[in-house]
Amino acid sequence: MKLVCPAGNLPMLKAAVGAGADAVYLGFRDDTNARHFAGLNFSDGSARRAVAHAHERGCEVYVAINTYPRPAGWRRWQRAVDTAADLGVDALILADLGVLDYAARRHPGVRLHLSVQGSATNSEALRFYADAFGVERAVLPRVLSMAQVERLCEDSPVELEVFGFGSLCVMVEGRCLLSAWTTGESPNTEGACSPARAVRWVESAGGTEVRLNDVLIDRFAPGENAGYPVVCKGRFTVNGATYHALEEPTSLNTLELLPALARAGVAAVKIEGRQRSVAYVDKVVRVWREALDTCRRSPEAYTPRSEWMATLASLSEGAQTTLGAYDRPWQ
């Protein structure tokens, strides 16, 4: 299995390559990718340096152009595809039907991956993208159980990539309008979930309130660990009970599933986190490199080492991790 790692900027890319990534993925500095955050991502020039750096060290580079263009922005997405193709990257990660069609026609030699934002969760959907655009790999939404991943590996006409570690989307990616509902900006169109401009922290004697476009998402007692406020990890009131009604602040960690994923035939594991720090990427990628190598040498004897789990937990939201939907009881 290949280890696919996030690169939010050039130092992060170098850290990921140095720590043992088989591939890194990055986006351009605009709304053509799903991590459209201020100060993040690559200009044409830094992308060129990134590709050179990675390729000299035998690491692949994928470019995510995985948001959905509306008519007014269409040319920006075309330009992103052309730029990435000219850079000689190893794959484009796309979601929109129009962009996929454009890339397949205009750059037939370029390898295409279906982004998780394409929401493909069954073999017929995967076959659609394979037949229509020659997609060679798909990233699966974080909603499938381990048994469903195994089944899909048997039936899929394309290679499959799954999420291994990082922030956990509890909703099917590409189909979540919770941020748009609250702030007017969505992952699909703006590449932003819970945009920073809409976030407001309000300190009071009783603790801290966090508001998203004025909507109260959560209240934290003094000293309580407060993560980045996304709608799905807030505390709300249902039938008089106030709790994390959708999901708790937690990160996905599938380290213990590695032998099963490898046995199923999963082609690649993805680390989420282009918006995180260089140190984060360095630590996470080192743990995963070692785990993948250990698992490959002797899958039967493999168990995640406690120091790996401790390192990953310390880098997780709310310092806790979950198997998410891979584990049926989570559902």
């Binding site: 959905y68 269409w74 979601a95 129009g98 590409g174 699909n188």
Partner: peptide
């Protein structure tokens, strides 16, 4: 939910 946002799609 098919996410058709543009004419090409």
């Amino acid at each position: 939910s098919l996410n058709l946002y543009n004419v090409a799609a």
